[in-house]
Design a protein around this nucleic acid. Structure first.
Lengths: 231, 231
DNA sequence: TCGAGGAATTTGGTCAAACCAATGTTATAA
DNA sequence: TTATAACATTGGTTTGACCAAATTCCTCGA
């Protein structure tokens, strides 16, 4: 069904496409409201609503008498830098794992306070798939990843979400490395599933501190398994 | 510093205070734009900008011909959260702070287990400079930064070290934003110094769990100060 | 020639009145 | 009672005007 979009949002997108999508560098000025109104064939009022939208999203800076300027978002570029740092093909497996411990523990805490019913549903599905996957390593891998990513997404913090996706490759590697152990000793795989389930319950019940503690323990245990698998 | 706030943001706050601060339950309808314009003695245009702000922040739902309704909030949000959303100059500031909480808490934990005498010496110097800087904001800023960076370096985890340097700009911004409050109330600045000192002691004595807990509290407090400084 | 000061212009901020479009309400007729 | 048409309400958009801040540009004096 064709959703009817609000005009000011459509305009905001057009503005981004025309001016913020690379054609205008940070610090440069946009055309005046009156010019934009003519260009897009709408009233100044409507253009102003679109500009407000961009301002509230931190994309531009509006100054009375001055004009609208593309914001030099330290933070936006910071965000990209952070991703770059983490992305760097790092052979530093254990350092990465420490980063994951930091990120995922805090994610669990935040998720417990913010997860929507839809977020929780995703986590339940991942849990369920994992339980079904005792004989299927690939399904297990995917479900395991889905669970960890699902928690990050439940924080609704865009930086955490991007970072966890950046770390996906590393997580996959780690899981594969430890899978041999897990499948040799099925009870251990069961332990992992139980840990996930407990983390889920803590998040679903809104117990942030407990969720964080459990996730810390979980990743510490992964580290131990990784050490074993390398012996 | 008497910042001149944009009218529509001020109005958005008033609307929250009058209607979303508990007096109106989720699902209930706000007065019409025309009524609100009369009530706050501004034009309908201005009221509309304020309502847009609330809509963009997901607090209300505006339906043509229907009216504006308080949204059933996805995330469990207390009043402070709401204020935060509306006030945030850059929506990513608080996301960044959450990232810092994750990184610096884990850093403190790791530092407590790995800090060398040289690492500890650096932290002591930063602490000392901070104590000396009650009258010198710039020195205080640098000492504050040095302390946080020093902890990351004491982890000897290259990823953490790179990340904290990437976040330096953001940290500086946050410290500056909260400095006004700190210097208005010197006892509060003393609190900050004491928090740093306690974190140092926990690290120096090898108590990782305590160091982590203290750092978490410290950054949570920074967040609260940041919220205050924006009101 | 250069710089300071100030007037004129540009640009965003606010207001008012009108009309359109979608929704909600009420009255009417089957 | 129900379906429908007329009306009222409410948000959406346009226009034009004026205010306030910032910028631009010109003049004048050193």
């Amino acid at each position: 069904m064709a959703e009817k979009k609000k005009t000011y949002l459509v305009l905001a997108d057009k503005l981004i496409e025309c001016y913020l999508g690379g054609n205008l560098k940070p610090g440069e000025r946009l055309p005046s409201e009156r010019e934009l109104a003519v260009q897009f064939n709408v009233s100044r009022t409507t253009i102003r609503e679109a500009l407000r939208t961009l301002e509230l999203n931190g994309l531009i800076d509006i100054r009375q008498g001055g004009g609208s300027y593309v914001k030099v978002s330290d933070i936006q570029s910071n965000k990209e830098e952070i991703i770059t740092v983490v992305k760097a093909e790092n052979p530093l497996v254990f350092e990465m794992l420490e980063l994951r411990r930091a990120l995922e523990a805090e994610s669990s805490f935040l998720a417990a306070n913010r997860a929507t019913p839809a977020d929780l549903e995703k986590l339940r599905i991942a849990l369920h798939n994992m339980a079904l996957s005792k004989q299927d390593p690939e399904l297990g891998l995917k479900a395991d990843l889905d669970f960890h990513i699902g928690i990050a997404e439940a924080t609704h913090n865009s930086i955490f979400i991007e970072l966890i996706h950046t770390l996906k490759g590393h997580m996959e590697e780690t899981i594969r490395a430890t899978q041999n152990h897990r499948f040799k000793d099925l009870s251990r795989y069961g332990d992992t599933i139980n840990e996930h389930r407990e983390i889920y319950l803590a998040i679903a019940s809104g117990n942030g501190d407990k969720a964080k503690e459990l996730m810390e323990g979980h990743i510490t245990k992964i580290r131990a398994e990784l050490v074993e698998s390398m012996i």
